[in-house]
Simulated scan of single mutants.
Amino acid sequence: MSESKDYGKASGNLEPGGNVDHDRCGGWRRFSGGRFARVWMGRDGLRAGWAVLLFVMIMSALLAGIAYAAHRLHHLPPMTGELQPSRMLIGELAMIFAAVVATKVMSLIDKRSWRDYGLQAPQRASRVAHLAQGLFFGAAAMALLMGTLRALHAVSIEPSGVALKPLLESAALWAVVFVLVGFSEETSFRGYVLFRLFRGVGPVAASLVTSAVFALVHLTNPGETAFGIVSVAATALVFCFAIWRTGALWWVIGFHAAWDWSQSFVFGIADSGTLASGHWLTSRPGGPAWLSGGAAGPEGSVLMLPLLAILVVLMVRTLPGGGGRRSVQAWR
């Protein structure tokens, strides 16, 4: 039995005369191990860059498969000029599915729990508290921004005229949709990817890379402006800072969800040039685009920068620090 086993190992490298081709064996060892292996393997396993690339490939393949199946089955609602909750619901659920599956696969490769990439917290109560706190700050920040724009006559706000019952139904439906938006975008852009890069290249480089990618993705939005893209990148950096402090995604998921819900449903102002259906108020930009945000909505206003600075101060005062550092140290 042992001879047969040895023969099986060497048979793929036999010369015509029956001798083992030691050059070929040595070449394979050099390719699969030794110095060459350092290109993709580090002290913690698969290097961060390769791990992130593999994560993106898995997500892309899953989303492509879902899109193809939906197209073949004709299960996508027709596109309109407004944001429709039914269409967004399908898209966000697909994104969440792809992000969670990709995270789970990569966690098996990393030999970690899939919740280690931003979905853990020291206690369940802290997860709920961070989510609730993020929801509050997201809604408050949008209200402050819109109130300031209104005071400066950069936006007009008036009731949309929607009846109470459909308005309440729309409020609940959009709340569900935007919670899914917050979860899907944060797990896709700042879940596995950000935490893996935290560990591989450090918090500063990880934040810069993921924020740049997040901003580039927003270039596909039809109503986006140059300052709107800068604002998106700056907001992403602030989100990374919050994640580094807490060591989890929950605060950012809450903020992201409440910000989008307030912007699209409560104030009914265009987000990258697109309005949400069934909104409560109707807001229209006025005056110079650099102040009102123009087609990009309030996210394209220069007032975003001081607002983000205020948020950073509030984060330092209200969010516990050291979560991201503890998360990285736990890998070692």
Results as ranks from 00 to 15, higher is better:
Pro203Asp: 13
Leu249Tyr: 10
Asp260Ser: 03
Ala205Cys: 11
Arg199Ile: 11
Ser211Cys: 09
Thr210Asp: 07
Gly287Arg: 07
Thr220Val: 12
Gly278Tyr: 07
Ser262His: 04
Gln263Gly: 01
Gln263Ile: 10
Glu224Leu: 04
Asp271Met: 13
Leu237Ala: 12
Pro222Ala: 13
Val252Leu: 02
Phe227Tyr: 15
Phe198Asp: 14
Leu249Pro: 00
Pro203Ile: 00
Ile229Val: 14
Thr235Arg: 02
Leu291Phe: 15
Leu237Asn: 08
Ser207Thr: 11
Pro222Gly: 14
Ile229Arg: 03
Phe241Trp: 15
Leu208Asn: 01
Thr274Tyr: 06
Ala276Arg: 00
Ser211Tyr: 14
His218Tyr: 11
Ser283Thr: 14
Gly202Pro: 03
Ala205Trp: 08
Glu224Thr: 10
Ile229Met: 11
Thr282Val: 14
Trp251Thr: 02
Gly268Val: 08
Arg199Gly: 14
Leu197Glu: 12
Gly254Asn: 04
Ala270Asp: 09
Gly278Asn: 03
Phe241Cys: 08
Phe241Gly: 03
Leu249Ile: 10
Arg284Lys: 13
Val204Met: 07
Trp261Ile: 01
Ala234Asp: 11
Leu237Trp: 13
Phe255Leu: 01
Val213Gly: 01
Val266Cys: 09
Gly223Ala: 12
Pro222Gln: 13
Thr274Asn: 10
Phe265Gln: 02
Pro203Met: 07
Ala242Gln: 06
Arg284His: 10
Ile253Ser: 01
Ile269Tyr: 00
Phe241Asp: 09
Pro285Ser: 11
Ile229Asp: 06
Gly278His: 02
Val266Tyr: 05
Leu275Gln: 04
Ala226Val: 15
Thr220Glu: 09
Glu224Cys: 05
Ala233Val: 09
Trp244Cys: 04
Gly228Asp: 00
